[in-house]
Computed example of a mutant assay.
Amino acid sequence: MTDWQAFTVEIKDHVAAVTLIGPGKGNAMGPDFWRELPEICAELDADPEVRAIVLTGSGRNFSYGLDLPAMSATFGSLLADRAFAAPRSEFLAEVRKMQASVTAVADCRKPVIAAVSGWCIGGGLDLIAAADIRLASADAKFSLREAKVAIVADIGSLHRLPGIIGEGHLRELAYTGKDIDAARAEKIGLVNDVYADQDAVLDAAHALAREIAANPPLVVQGIKDVVEQRTKDTVAAGLRYVSAWNAAFLPSEDLTEAITAVFEKREPRFEGR
């Protein structure tokens, strides 16, 4: 396997362990993450030795989500020249590349089990929504936080989570940007089970992956393919729509205020402009 900057990948007993390693704080998702994730998924998909994948984060947290400082250029050109078509077109292309990175997880023929400890925020939630199965440790916390930074979530949560947690719970999380704990996540179906700590959830995820890997691999891949057909076209259409929506409407004084507040480490003051 390649030497990755944002991940480590280890393969043992037909199970690939894919671990987020940053380099942003809290495994935040910067340029390396978005570039490498589809490459890793493609390699694992093509490797006949891999029959299941465990996806987790290094350190105490799964992921803080989008690395705003590292990705600021993506938003900066859009805000600097908000009236012009060129930066909007560039932003649209960048968002669609990021969408494709996460969609690579859903498209991978090998089942993906997300093992979540600590914070799983924004893009982290997009990522685990694309996984097949989600498990959590008791200290896990989840947040669809984009509304709090003046962004319509556009990498997949709004399109994949309805089939996982239902419309009502999705809308509550998306409209409020609130944090929920592992117990609430299990109650609404975001995660299948909750375990005592990080070691326990990783052990459970690997045990489940080995159980899956013991079955005929082509049959398991066929099951995933059949199950994915139920929502694949709907998700793809939704991703195209939200990327175009954000390219048109994302530039705002509220977004500028949100990004400024992050850098200044203060609460934002939104005015609806």
Rank of each mutant, 00 (worst) to 15 (best):
W4Q: 01
T8P: 11
V9I: 05
I11W: 09
I11H: 10
H14Y: 09
V18M: 13
L20I: 10
I21N: 08
G22Y: 09
P23R: 06
P23L: 02
K25Q: 11
G26R: 04
A28M: 07
M29R: 03
M29T: 03
G30Q: 01
D32I: 01
F33E: 02
R35C: 08
R35M: 13
P38E: 03
I40K: 04
I40G: 04
A42Q: 13
E43I: 09
E43W: 07
D45G: 05
A46Y: 07
D47L: 12
E49Q: 15
V50T: 14
V50S: 07
R51E: 13
A52F: 08
I53V: 15
L55P: 05
S58Y: 11
G59Y: 09
R60V: 04
R60M: 05
R60N: 06
R60I: 03
F62D: 03
Y64S: 10
G65Y: 02
M71H: 02
S72M: 12
A73L: 03
T74W: 04
F75L: 14
F75H: 03
F75Y: 14
G76N: 13
G76L: 12
L79P: 00
D81E: 15
A83T: 11
A83G: 07
A83V: 04
S89N: 13
E90Q: 15
L92A: 07
L92V: 00
A93Y: 00
V95R: 02
K97N: 15
M98H: 14
M98S: 13
A100G: 06
A104F: 01
V105G: 08
D107M: 09
C108S: 08
C108V: 09
R109I: 00
K110V: 12
